[in-house]
Design a binder for these strands. Structure first.
Lengths: 228, 228
DNA sequence: ATTACTAATATCCGAGTAG
DNA sequence: TCTACTCGGATATTAGTAA
């Protein structure tokens, strides 16, 4: 925690007030009441959190809109993950196995989108090779694990609109593919496939690098102990 | 959070130092270093946390043993659950369906144990009817859900020894049984049954109250939004 | 209503030190 | 070494108030 406890707690309360990743109307008076402190102190804390890049504000004279941004969400997520380790127990690693199959080429389309690309670079540390590798999960055990995975906090690539189409939120988990390549598993909200499919991206062309053909069996390992 | 942020954070750091639910050696100097505060302040906070019932201490002249106890674990768990809701999204409800079958009568034995009974009363708000109702989960979907459930923070009934035998930790989730009776699902560490079985308790005799016979299909609903 | 400044004050922290 | 006391000083909070 790089933040003083009182400020972290302020951030936490702001999240409870609906400002986690989206704007919500929170006045300094309202926040003060929630924290049982004075309006003046609440105001000062908001100023600090904004100047330090934890939140974004749109101030008007009838309350201000507040949104916790990246640095702030990280701060909350860190504590969440640590508490998870303490309460639920030791770190978990989830491994998937499935067979490669050809998709509709849609993966290449959205992964290459300018808006997504910059976010991938920033949050995953690489720009994906244009195209996703589709994995068909075979056993029910693997499908079960995917469900489990969905429960964990992911790195989130934000969606956007460009007039014609809406691009949804993409959740990512850094993953080790075939024990060789560091890439990521993508969980897309609406995909053409069902819950038996996993989409992979990597900085390189996975089919070439790993000499993969359709039908080959691939192993994917996600380390959930990673504190993004 | 009934605790001031600085004290909550102290508790959190204590948990990281291995004192969550078990004794670990933590000197005030060590804690001070972890928190980047003085030894004196750390000492003061420990005194407060102990006097207020968040932690238990065994003080010796070469460091003291510290353990976060009930009130303290609740405080940490509360924040964990709230963060979970904020980060993972909306509250979740898990429903199970399975068929009733007769057990070995062991459920009645341990549920009635004096030590367990008082904890049930305190933490679940009722004393269970002596005997558990065993549910055989039918579909793979239900088994999948049980796995999911196991991931969530539960109300914990602590284990104990009584010379002859060791009684293990029991995890509970308040549940609505057959849309009628409020009871709880118990997850026992070592049970005779495998992961396809769910054990239920309630303040009343479920077989009588719901007119259940072996083989009947029963629905159990757990609301994970409950902030125990 | 709001946010946020300044000045007064309450609170908390740490140095020194004892047991 | 440990824990934990006192007390002066640092820090944070609030009251009063402006915009």
């Amino acid at each position: 925690m790089t933040l003083k406890p009182a400020l972290w707690y302020t951030l936490y309360k702001l999240a409870e007030l609906g400002t986690y990743n989206k704007f919500a109307k929170v006045s300094s008076t309202k926040l003060a009441a929630e924290l049982s402190i004075s309006q003046q102190t609440a105001s000062k804390r908001l100023i600090y959190l904004e100047e330090s890049g934890y939140i974004e504000r749109k101030i008007s004279s009838r309350g201000s809109l507040i949104k916790i941004i990246n640095k702030g969400t990280e701060e909350l997520r860190k504590v969440y993950i640590n508490l998870q380790l303490l309460i639920k127990g030791p770190p978990i690693e989830i491994t998937f196995e499935g067979r490669v199959f050809s998709g509709f080429g849609e993966g290449a389309y959205y992964v290459s989108h300018r808006n997504y690309k910059s976010q991938f670079m920033e949050k995953l540390g690489f720009v994906p090779y244009p195209g996703t590798l589709n994995l068909k999960l075979s056993s029910s055990m693997n499908i079960l694990r995917k469900r489990e995975l969905m429960g964990y906090p992911a790195i989130e690539i934000e969606g956007f609109k460009n007039g014609k189409r809406t691009y949804g939120l993409v959740k990512c988990f850094p993953a080790l593919i075939s024990d060789k390549v560091n890439g990521a598993v993508l969980l897309v909200n609406r995909t053409h496939y069902d819950e038996t499919v996993l989409e992979l991206v990597a900085p390189v062309n996975l089919r070439e690098t790993l000499k993969i053909r359709d039908g080959d069996k691939i192993k994917v390992k996600i380390n959930l102990a990673n504190k993004h």
